[in-house]
């Protein structure tokens, strides 16, 4: 039986100190609904379905993808985990 292919779940977020007007607008909306929210930072979430290869290779590849294309190091940070 085929096992599920590995999936990388990638989160790209704005660096601290970079203004996030969308996050601010969402925070205001949540506060208007009566919730106590101290800060909202919006980011991007990507799911990459990968070929079944050794974990270390996948980790290295995804890190490289994040550095090359998926994030801009001037304004964004990234993190990811690979499942299963």
């Amino acid at each position: 039986m085929l096992s599920a292919l590995p999936t990388a779940k990638v989160y790209v977020t704005l660096k601290k100190g970079v203004l996030d007007p969308q996050g601010l607008t969402v925070q205001n909306a949540l506060e208007a609904l009566g919730y106590d929210v101290q800060e909202v930072r919006m980011g991007k979430y990507l799911e990459l379905t990968l070929a079944d290869r050794p974990r270390e290779e996948l980790e290295a590849d995804v890190a490289e993808m994040c550095e090359k294309l998926l994030s801009n190091p001037v304004i964004e940070d990234f993190r990811f985990n690979i499942e299963p």
């Binding site: 203004l19 007007p21 969308q22």
Partner: peptide
């Protein structure tokens, strides 16, 4: 540098 979304959205 980099470009961000307009502050006014």
């Amino acid at each position: 540098g980099a470009m961000l979304r307009n502050q006014s959205l």
